[in-house]
Structures are given as structure tokens and as C-alpha cells.
């Protein structure tokens, strides 16, 4: 590519340098109002959670027993909990974990589900074994499975990666491998129908290899259910994380997460409703923003809608 000259005005489409299609995707994403608001909310939340503790430096586990069960004050903008721990600090610390766990576990589950669904739907001889494998995972009782995982892997992972990273890996993997099945079944169902469509037939008739077929032709067409799964998956992961900590599989008990803050606060629903509202709102906002970003991403990736 040579440098553009003044003689060839960019406004002439014929002279414009070939543009990466991802720019189009981004453009389309930016025109999607919901997606934009979703993205901004999400970025603000992530920034608050990551940078907030630098500004608001109270230790989330510090107990100030004289200040327990306080409403919003200047010293504690979101009030304090039953031990006098600062709720704002706990919300920020909890958000870091919940967003990290929710996102990573959702991505893992999405990756597994999409991969298995694509393979099972596309390759006839993989369909049977992979779907029976899915049936097995659907049938396994969750609680004993998690308990076995803790028993077998917690100490090994802690020793290998240190206690916190070890627990993080364990939680993400536990949530990921117990929640991919729905995505897999949905993707497979769609692929079964897609691969009989004309455009797939056309692509196949010109000798497109399977890998390219799947990645270029099939995958983009199953993006919308995958996006819905992503949204539902992140909500699921945040809540499951709190359930895990009750089994002793999660982070240490004084370590706050949104799911846990919400669960602990339910008993205080009548006395201190704000304690339930904050974590509930945070989880809902995260899920909503992911939902709208997913909407925008889906629209942006769809060439039929793009440019409309």
C-alpha cells in the first residue's frame, strides 16, 4: 500500500484503501444505542471496581464493631454491615471477584458449549458420542460433583498457583464445566438446520474445507443464541459462585463477592433493605449491560443488518 495522495480523494469509494471488516463491525456497534450505553455502564462498573479501592482505601474486611448496621453516612456512603464493615469497600472488592469469575466462567462455558455443539452438529459421526456425553453431564448431580472437585483438586491447585489463583481457577472451571450443556444443545440444533441450507451447500460444492466452513459460514450464523447464552451465563456464574462459597469451595468466608453479599443480606431484608439492593442492583446492571452489548455485537456481526 502506498501513502494516499491528495489526488485520490477518500470520499471516492473506489479509491478508499480496503478496509478491515472489523472496522465495519465496530462502526455498526457504535450506532447501536443500547450497546453503547451497555458498554459504557459496563466499563464504568469495571473501572469503579478496579480503580475504586485506590480512592476508597478502607479495607473491606476491616471490622469496626461500634459502627455496625449503619445507614449511609459520610464515612460509609453505602452504610455498614452487621460487623461494621464498610459496604462500599465490600461492594468494590466483591465486584472484582464477581465480574472476573462471571466473565471467565461464562467464556469458558461458552467456548466449550459452542465447540461441542458445532462439532456434534457438523460431523455426523461425532454427533452421537458428543450428545451422549452432554446427556451424561446434564444428569450428573451438581453438588456431589463440586464436592468431589474440591476434594481432588483444591490442594493441588493451591500448591501450584497459590491459594487465591488456585481457588479462582477451581471456581471458574467448576462453573464452566457444569454449565456448557445448554449452549451445546442449542448450537447443535441450529447447526443441524444450517448445514442443509443452500449457502452451505454452495460453499461445500466449491470445496471449502471443514474448518473454514465451520468458522466462516456456520459459526457467524449461530451467534445470536450464543449471545443469549452469554448473557444468561454471566448471571448464572455470579450466583453459582456464591453457592460454591457455602460449600467451602469458594474464596475464604471473609472475602466478599456480590452473590455472597446478596445472600447474606436476605435475612436483613426488612431491617436494612439497602444492603440487599446494592448487590442486587450491581448484578442486574452487569447482566443488563452484557445483554445489550451482546445485542449490539450480534447486530454488528450480521452483514444483513450492518449498514441498514
Amino acid at each position: 500500500m502506498t501513502e494516499p495522495t491528495a489526488a485520490a480523494p477518500l470520499s471516492d469509494p473506489a479509491n478508499r484503501p480496503p478496509r478491515n471488516q472489523w472496522w465495519d463491525v465496530l462502526d455498526q456497534f457504535r450506532t447501536h444505542r443500547g450497546a453503547l450505553i451497555g458498554a459504557i455502564v459496563f466499563i464504568v462498573m469495571v473501572a469503579t471496581v478496579l480503580l475504586g479501592p485506590w480512592v476508597w482505601s478502607i479495607d473491606p474486611t476491616y471490622i469496626d464493631i461500634r459502627a455496625r448496621n449503619q445507614g449511609p453516612t459520610f464515612a460509609h456512603p453505602l452504610g455498614t454491615d452487621q460487623l461494621g464493615r464498610d459496604m462500599l469497600a465490600r461492594m468494590m472488592a466483591g465486584g472484582k471477584v464477581s465480574i472476573a469469575v462471571g466473565f471467565t466462567a461464562m467464556l469458558l462455558s461458552l467456548f466449550l458449549g459452542t465447540l461441542i455443539g458445532l462439532l456434534a452438529g457438523y460431523f455426523k459421526n461425532l454427533d452421537g458420542p458428543l450428545m451422549r456425553f452432554t446427556d451424561l453431564f446434564l444428569a450428573l448431580p451438581l453438588l456431589p460433583l463440586l464436592l468431589v472437585m474440591v476434594m481432588l483438586f483444591r490442594e493441588a491447585l493451591s500448591a501450584r498457583f497459590g491459594p487465591e489463583t488456585g481457588v479462582f481457577i477451581l471456581i471458574v472451571v467448576a462453573i464452566g464445566i457444569t454449565s456448557w450443556m445448554q449452549t451445546a444443545r442449542i448450537v447443535r440444533g441450529d447447526v443441524l438446520a444450517l448445514k442443509e441450507r443452500e449457502f452451505v451447500l454452495a460453499a461445500r460444492s466449491i470445496g471449502t474445507p471443514s474448518r473454514r466452513m465451520i468458522l466462516r459460514h456456520i459459526l457467524p450464523n449461530v451467534m445470536s443464541p450464543v449471545m443469549v447464552s452469554a448473557t444468561l451465563g454471566i448471571a448464572n456464574a455470579i450466583i453459582t459462585e456464591s453457592a460454591l462459597s457455602f460449600l467451602g469451595l469458594g474464596f475464604p468466608p471473609d472475602f466478599p463477592t456480590w452473590g455472597r453479599l446478596l445472600f447474606d443480606a436476605v435475612d436483613y431484608l426488612q431491617q436494612y433493605p439497602s444492603r440487599v439492593i446494592w448487590p442486587g442492583l450491581a448484578i442486574s446492571l452487569t447482566v443488563l449491560s452484557v445483554n445489550y452489548m451482546g445485542d449490539g455485537l450480534r447486530d454488528a456481526l450480521d452483514p444483513r443488518i450492518r449498514g441498514r
Binding site: 452473590g259 445472600f263 436476605v266 442486574s284 447482566v287 445483554n291
Partner: peptide
Amino acid sequence: DQIGALVSMIGYSVPTFFTGVLLIV
């Protein structure tokens, strides 16, 4: 569509251990 999205996302992301107790109260 917007209200549907809002309601269903809140319905899904707020766990039943909370909505249930809220309804009871």
C-alpha cells in the same frame, strides 16, 4: 422490547432466594 429485556434480565439475574423472600415479606 426494551421493557421485555429489562424485566427478563432482572427476572433472571436476581436469584430466587431473594425474590422469594421479598414476595413473602
